[in-house]
Design a protein around this nucleic acid. Structure first.
Length: 651
DNA sequence: GTTCTAGAAC
DNA sequence: GTTCTAGAAC
């Protein structure tokens, strides 16, 4: 563990050998100290965001930036400045008052959104004492809660505190590297430049002291930042290995970082000596995860705001599969704190939860968690269970366990993002007049040039003049033209075109076309032979679409792996795997027997559920289907194995 | 036939 | 927020 030293820069006033220093000097000095791993305290009157921004940006993402704001009533500030005749800034008397007044016009209290992870507002001496105490007690492994603090008692007696605050901090730090309790001590202190403390851990902390001189309402914008507080899933009751769990947490957090926007994730644990917190902190630091948007927090997840000052609009619950209260731990605590309203709202969403899943529950305003803590949503999460005394134990199978835990965090973060998204959007739309996108705008920007060829005729053109399409044509005879499908839906997918006019689709085929159809089939088979010779694993079907979208009768010769990036839509799938696809052998037989082919109902077949063409299992969407068929080795359905529908024939 | 895109689903 | 689909345009 690195020991970090803390340097206190009484900036600008004293940095330059007792004379006024410049801001660049301050920045340079502070940057150098941060680079050495020291914590830096900056005492500066930063009235607005612009003045602060350079300091906030000093460190990289691994440096936490805190602000302690002396937010004193204006009169007091002015009178104080006026009395401060020895100020190196050479402001005296009424002139100072005028300057302060002018400055106050542009006063802008710091906000978390500027990049501070923690802001403490002090309006009186009590506040200052508390702040001093807090910062003095920061130990090697500690991270202070993030968020805005203070402002709780604006009516308390006001007293100046900035110099005292800084002096105390200075004295305390000067003593040694052990964090001390701040009491009434008045330690000897002559040094003014460098002090030692033992602050290290996930991030070195730069504390910015901004002496603010006017009253004003604090914009509690920490509540504007969507924040998810979550407990470590599965590591308590479900006995999931802490090392592995911390890897999963940090990995998933890292994955979601760029989707977060300004939203924050906070891992919460009750105990100060939480092993999972230190593991996660260490790993997050290693991966240089932005500590402003992901950090750990020690406290009760049900009282983050009232007890910890941390505003979290969303909290996660390590739920049980029945989504019921009880069981102890976080689940019991959250259901208890959420009251009957949470239970009812949960029931409304679902009755149970599978491992690896999360359930977002909007919290009714009647829930104490909502009214007291500002929690708008609870997300129930169920992780994998490694505890043999709990249901569905994975029996030490950590391959599966890690996967399920990853899924659980994915679901959780996705759920959170969905909330963060809608909550950000609502106020924006409320301010605007109801109107769609301007038509005028559309007309101005919508100057698309029409460069598309009418491709419905493409096959027809090729069939009529194959010599003009040498690049595409694989083979041409008087009767047929063979070419690769431009968008193959399988490893091998080619088309055999009929070369006569008036045979646009299968519906046009009559008995007189039968010799041609047989030729097409023969040509197709020859290509199948060739392909199978190259790859013996391939199996083909030859057939027609009942209602083709392109003109000119064409026979599909397609391998049954359907391994293709071009297979994207339900229609693609169903057009090759339902009755919509008419096997060539059946078509020829029908035409021979009935004079024409049966045309199947396009609409019905295209909207059929997605089923594996081998095992006939159903799948909810194309990606899942494709994932399944990439590995399904089931034999083809019996009807396909008849009459030479599959080539080569399966044994 | 694909591409584009709104909005449904998750 | 992303993923996915269906419908329209081409």
């Amino acid at each position: 563990m690195l020991k970090k030293r803390s340097i206190y820069l009484r900036l600008q006033d004293t940095i330059n050998n007792g004379k006024s220093g410049t801001k660049p000097q301050c920045l340079k000095s502070a940057a150098a100290s941060l680079k050495e791993g020291k914590s830096v305290f900056i005492d500066r009157c930063n009235l607005d965001k612009e003045q602060r921004v350079d300091f906030v940006n000093l460190g990289g993402p691994e440096v936490e930036v805190h602000a302690v704001v002396l937010d004193l009533p204006a009169k007091l500030s002015i009178s104080r400045i006026v009395k401060r005749t020895g100020h190196e800034g050479n402001l005296q008397g009424g002139k100072a008052a005028a300057v302060v007044n002018r400055m106050l016009q542009n006063k802008e209290l710091p906000k978390l959104s500027e990049g501070f992870s923690r802001i403490t507002f002090c309006r009186n001496e009590t506040d200052v004492d508390a702040a001093v105490k807090t910062y003095t007690a920061v130990g090697p492994l500690d991270t202070l809660p993030h968020g805005c603090f203070g402002q709780k008692d604006p009516n308390a007696k006001t007293q100046l505190g900035i110099m005292r605050f800084l002096k105390r901090l200075h004295e305390t730090n000067a003593r040694d590297s052990v964090p001390s309790q701040l009491t009434e001590e008045k330690g000897p202190c002559g040094k003014t430049q460098e002090t030692v403390s033992s602050s290290s851990g996930m991030a070195s902390q730069k504390i910015k002291v901004s002496e603010d001189m006017a009253p004003g309402s604090i914009s509690h914008d920490e509540s504007d930042i969507p924040t998810l507080a979550f407990p470590s899933i599965s590591t308590v009751d479900f006995q999931f290995d802490l090392e592995k769990a911390s890897d999963v947490i940090v990995g998933k957090v890292e994955e979601f970082m760029d989707k977060l926007g300004n939203a924050r994730l906070v891992l919460v644990d009750l105990t100060e000596r939480s092993k999972i917190l230190s593991l996660v902190r260490a790993k997050a630091a290693e991966k240089k995860i932005d500590s402003k948007r992901f950090f750990t927090f020690i406290g009760d997840i049900c009282q983050l705001y009232t007890k910890g000052g941390l505003c979290c609009n969303v909290i996660a619950n390590a739920a049980n599969w029945r989504l019921k209260p009880g069981g102890g731990g976080v689940n019991a605590a959250i259901f208890n704190a959420g009251g009957p309203a949470l239970e009812a709202a949960t029931k409304e969403q679902a009755r149970s939860l599978l491992p690896g899943n999360a359930l977002v529950v909007p919290l009714p305003s009647t829930s104490p968690l909502y009214s007291k803590e500002g929690v708008t949503h609870v997300i129930h999460v169920l992780g994998p269970n490694m505890n043999p005394r709990r249901p569905n134990c994975l029996d030490n199978d950590y391959v599966k366990g890690c996967k399920v835990l990853e899924d659980a965090y994915s679901s959780l973060f996705k759920g959170f993002l969905s909330i963060a998204n809608t909550q950000v959007k609502v106020p924006r739309s409320s301010g605007s007049i109801l109107s769609g996108p301007s038509k005028l705008e559309d007309e101005i920007s919508g100057t698309k040039t029409k460069t598309w060829a009418p491709c419905l005729q493409a096959l027809y053109n090729i069939a009529m003049q194959p010599e003009k399409h040498n690049k595409q044509v694989l083979e041409a005879s008087d009767d047929v033209v063979v070419l690769n499908d431009i968008y193959p839906k399988a490893k091998q997918h080619l088309l055999v075109l009929a070369r006569i006019k008036g045979l646009d689709t299968l519906a046009d085929a009559r008995k007189e076309h039968l010799p041609l159809l047989m030729t097409m089939h023969e040509v197709g088979l020859r290509w199948v032979d060739k392909f199978v010779g190259e790859d013996a694993s391939l199996v083909f079907r030859l057939g027609y679409h009942s209602v083709p979208s392109m003109r000119q009768l064409h026979l599909h010769v397609i391998s049954q792996d359907f391994d293709s990036k071009n297979l994207k839509h339900k229609k693609h799938w169903n057009s090759f795997t339902t009755a919509f696809f008419r096997d060539s052998v059946d078509v020829m037989e029908e035409i021979n027997n009935q004079g024409k082919a049966t045309i199947q109902d396009e609409k019905r077949l295209m909207s059929m559920e997605l089923r594996c063409h081998r095992c006939r299992s159903a799948h909810p969407n194309i990606p899942r289907l494709k994932s399944h068929i990439s590995s399904c080795q089931a034999p083809f359905p019996a009807d396909l194995q008849k009459k030479g529908r599959l080539v080569p024939e399966q044994n």
